[in-house]
């Protein structure tokens, strides 16, 4: 009787593809109704499943087959509970995937069966860092921004110029800025990932470019050249954008903005950032290059406040 509750949705789906499951679906449906009315199923579907299963197991282990046969009701209830639990888990996962681009919600970057490659959640992570109290990051006047400075909402992004996932989020960031033209502003904070080559140097370089008023262009060109970037390119790219390379090189060689980079990274760590990119939209955190729809859902929510 219990098993028909599990059989119904399974057979219903299978019957879309094969007519042979339609009869079984109707049998399961009838059984579900009768179970709901505390009556015995007429179809004998449960009994057939019980006997078939027992027979198959008996080939391997008669003792286990006997156990299954004698405890079938209890086992059915256990399977039913697991089934309901997994249906619940799958539904939550699907909801999260639709809303956040990951089964695990906005912040978790664990495995998601709907996104097995982790397209929306992969980040460049640092080693675990224990933080007793989370301090949300604050906007800083001096830090560069993308979009309208007077926008109603400013998103803070912790990113790394050497991080491929931060790079992957760039088109989404652009899409957000285009969609919410003038209404949303994004402040990019450099988060230093020690095991990434040129992570620290690119962060310094972006600050040196800002000094010469070319931050946005330089931010863009670094990401465009991320895959092949070498240290010497940092100055060459600055020159290409018409910056004063002597001044730029001096800024780099003296590590003028070392404290700024470290301060941004520390701010990220205090805010609980463990990998890049991480976005703060109001009090909400998004980890990884999430799809546009996820950003939109959070931005719309914040805009309504």
């Amino acid at each position: 009787m219990v098993l028909c509750l599990i059989a119904l949705p399974i057979f219903a789906v299978l019957s879309i593809f094969s007519a042979k499951y339609r009869k079984l679906t109707l049998e399961s449906l009838d059984c579900v109704f009768r179970t709901a009315a505390f009556r015995k199923c007429r179809s004998g579907l449960d009994d057939r499943v019980k006997a078939s299963l027992t027979g198959k197991v008996m080939r391997v282990s008669p003792r286990t087959a006997g156990f299954i046969y004698n405890n079938y009701k209890i086992l059915s209830w256990i399977i039913l509970i697991i089934f309901v639990w997994s249906i619940y888990g799958t539904s939550v996962g699907l909801y999260n995937y639709a809303k956040y681009g990951s089964c695990n919600g906005p912040e978790d970057t664990g495995f998601c069966m709907f996104d097995p490659a982790g397209t929306n959640t992969k980040t460049s992570e640092i080693d675990a860092y224990q933080q007793s109290e989370i301090i949300l990051p604050a906007l800083e006047e001096n830090d560069p921004t993308m979009g309208n400075k007077n926008a109603k909402l400013t998103i803070i992004e912790f990113g790394c110029y050497a991080c491929p996932y931060t790079n992957k989020a760039e088109p989404i960031v652009k899409e957000v800025l285009d969609y919410y033209k003038g209404k949303v502003n994004i402040q990019f904070k450099t988060f230093y990932i020690p095991h990434h080559n040129l992570s620290f140097q690119t962060a310094l370089a972006a600050n040196c470019a800002q000094e010469q008023g070319s931050y946005l262009e330089y931010h863009k060109i670094i990401f465009e050249n991320q895959e092949t970037l070498k240290f010497e390119d940092l100055s060459l790219l600055a020159g290409k954008l018409g910056m004063n390379t002597t001044k730029f090189d001096e800024c780099m060689s003296t590590q003028k903005y070392k404290d700024e980079v470290q301060s941004d990274t520390l701010m990220g760590l205090h805010a609980g950032v463990r990998g890049t990119p991480t976005f703060f939209i109001g009090n909400n955190t998004l980890v990884g290059p999430r799809p546009f729809r996820t950003f939109k859902a959070f931005i719309d929510k914040e805009m309504k406040k």
Partner: peptide, 14 residues
């Protein structure tokens, strides 16, 4: 045991 169970088990085992 139900006779139907016996028949079904026999079919599925050997």
């Amino acid at each position: 045991m139900s006779h139907h169970d016996v028949a079904k088990i026999l079919d599925n085992s050997r």
